[in-house]
Computed example of a mutant assay.
Amino acid sequence: MTPEDQAMLAFATKWSRFGGGDEYILPEFGITPVVFYQRLLTMVTSTLINDVDFATRTYLRDFCSSKLARPASRAVAASRVAM
């Protein structure tokens, strides 16, 4: 696991209980929240990462899935606000 992967996992573990900390993702990682949750979901569903226990993987998988499944209208509205 790369240092960036570790930082993303630590960030998600810390902020998920507060809704995710989406406003801090771009300044911290230089990517949008959607990209962040896509990468994190790929990480926690990968068989290549063994550093994360099953319970944490399951929790983060469900959390990322819920963040990515938000209605498209909210995502469009949020992107318009950011412009």
Rank of each mutant, 00 (worst) to 15 (best):
D62F: 15
D62H: 12
A82F: 11
T13N: 13
I49V: 08
L40W: 11
T2D: 10
I49D: 08
E28K: 10
D22T: 08
R80D: 01
A10S: 13
A77K: 10
F29C: 09
R74S: 07
G21S: 06
D5Q: 07
D22M: 11
R80F: 13
L41N: 05
V34G: 00
R70S: 00
F54I: 07
M1W: 03
P33R: 08
G20N: 07
K14A: 13
M8E: 14
P71N: 11
A12G: 02
V34M: 06
A72S: 03
R74L: 15
T32S: 12
P33Q: 07
S79W: 03
P3K: 03
K14W: 10
A75H: 11
T32W: 01
F18W: 02
M83V: 12
R70C: 08
W15H: 05
L26K: 06
S73M: 14
V44E: 15
I49F: 14
I25G: 04
A69Q: 14
E28V: 05
S66W: 15
T42R: 15
V81Q: 00
K67F: 07
I31R: 02
M1I: 15
E23A: 15
R74C: 05
F63P: 00
A55P: 00
A77H: 04
L40M: 08
I49E: 09
S73V: 15
Q6R: 13
D51H: 00
